[in-house]
Design a protein around this nucleic acid. Structure first.
Lengths: 139, 139
DNA sequence: CTAAATTAAATTTTACACAATATAAAATGA
DNA sequence: TCATTTTATATTGTGTAAAATTTAATTTAG
């Protein structure tokens, strides 16, 4: 009869702690590009697709407009993205890369390998972890 | 030659999304106890040990005083913990359970099983996930 | 064709997170 | 002893998160 309310027995706590550890690992690397980890995630999406609505970014990153709107304003202020209201449907705000935002990709290209080496675990194990997490993630 | 800067290829993104999903799963359950997920983590520690310094809580939960101080003030305001400055060493603030804080445990006792059923994965898989996460967590 | 419903963002509010700094008490050392 | 360093917490500032509400624009139903 083990006590399920012991911190030791929680699965959720290591997941929560790991997530924060990730942000902290990225911070010194992303500081050089003067962006934060959630801002980096937005850039990852835009480097793939160039233009997205706020809604589409939110779906992809599982974040809502209350989080994204101020975050995107900060990215725009730094000159990495454009925020342009759509002509066809004026409720929609289109987020696109600026020249500078596109160029940032070059400076980011070594970040993934640096992070993996910081984590100090084999690639196989990380892929395994990713597989489990994706299975648990709702949708 | 796969592109490591694709969101799809990130290990960190599912970990980040999973952590937020956890908080969102706990929210409706914890709303009934009128505490948040980080506050719940503090309560888990106190239900085990009754009295801790701010420092000890921070070490256990990997949170710093900038996060804990206001969080603990909110828990104190709700009447679940006492914040008492130590007589022996006045730099130290001792956090202990109130009667009400102790009683809250009874109301929380079914939360772990409810969360596990929400996650919709086998116990074995969750334990496996926990093992990997604990291995990656620094320290 | 227009009132009602729906949709997309933005805003507001509350609560983390964490870096950097401040404050104050205790321990240390010449 | 008393200046110096260390330790413990608090404060400040910036940046997420997410619920709830608001605003404005589009769609749909009658």
């Amino acid at each position: 009869m083990e006590d399920l309310l012991k911190l030791e027995n929680q699965i959720c706590f290591p997941a929560y702690a790991f997530s924060r550890q990730i942000t902290n690992l990225y911070r010194p690397l992303l500081d050089k590009l003067s962006i934060t980890y959630p801002q980096y995630l937005v850039m990852l999406v835009l480097w793939e697709e160039k233009e997205k609505t706020v809604n589409q970014l939110g779906e992809r990153l599982r974040l809502d407009s209350g989080t994204l709107t101020p975050l995107l304003k900060r990215l725009a202020q730094k000159g990495f993205v454009n925020r342009i209201r759509s002509k066809e449907d004026e409720r929609i705000v289109l987020i696109s890369l600026t020249e500078e935002g596109s160029n940032l990709r070059e400076q980011a290209k070594d970040i993934p390998t640096q992070i993996v080496s910081c984590l100090g675990v084999s690639i196989e194990e990380l892929i395994h972890l990713k597989t489990i997490l994706n299975k648990i993630l709702i949708n």
